[in-house]
Amino acid sequence: MPLTTAIETSGLTKFYGDSPGIIDLDLDVRVGEVFGFLGPNGAGKSTTIRCLMNFLFPTSGSAKVLGLDVVKDTIEIRRRTGYLPGELAMYEPMTAREFLLYFANLRGVAASKKMEELADRFDLDLDRKIKDYSTGNRQKVGLVNAFMHEPELLILDEPTGGLDPLMQQEFQELIAEVRAEGRTVFLSSHILPEVDRVADRVGIVRDQRLIEVDTLESFKAKAHRSITIQFADVVDAATFAAIDNVTRAESRNSGTVLSLTVQGDMDPVVKAASAYDVVSISTRAGELEEVFLSYYAGTHDAS
């Protein structure tokens, strides 16, 4: 039977003494998907990842990666997994090439061709000492290390920290390629747009607990978006307020500008607006973020 679940945790709990790292986590990451693990700093993302990598031993519950037990079969899991830590610490006096060569050796793979290819792609000079790299270039070395042995699962803790927009785009393309090849990516982040562009499904953690898992589309459907329409003439706000999806309607500028908050489908609003002479429409960027912010802050009712 082919493997369908890449990561599966049931009741995974980790306590550091008395303080909780992650509590009662049930998570399913399917093979071939890109899963975004979202949450504010200190929510339990890294604890979860470090349990999956067997750096930490769960206090209770269990976890399977690629169908294998994280504690018993950690070596086999690690053989098939590429990992990027959240706090990337490397051997400062080594050059990137030496560092990557060493890690390829530890895995017993000859990764030099793929390594060069990735370095080219990220525009990274491998023959410089790691201590001389900027934050972004260090991150690139970490990414090359995670990708160079072409693992079937990638576990990436805050992968794009320090990368410039051009390299972030390169990273997104790389993720898209990996997905196209049927491989799985599990990435954590506290930045929504980063996940927005690559992830199929998203899980949100807050205060050591998983609050919700859903597809990005569903989250978007739940999003409250702000839309501002400028009309040539005065329009009646009440007409728009009556639409089901509209939760708020305000007119400004003596009634020629309408500011609306819409939840879900935008279609009825656009259709209603088409009855008038429209000068411009603008929606606020990052509207999805508001949903997440409400999750993060705990103001959103998870039910």
Binding site: R78, E87, A89
Partner: peptide
């Protein structure tokens, strides 16, 4: 303490 052990142990070394 620096976290490099995490990285090394993410390879296949027992």
């Amino acid at each position: 303490s620096t976290g490099r052990l995490d990285l090394v142990l993410s390879s296949t070394v027992p």
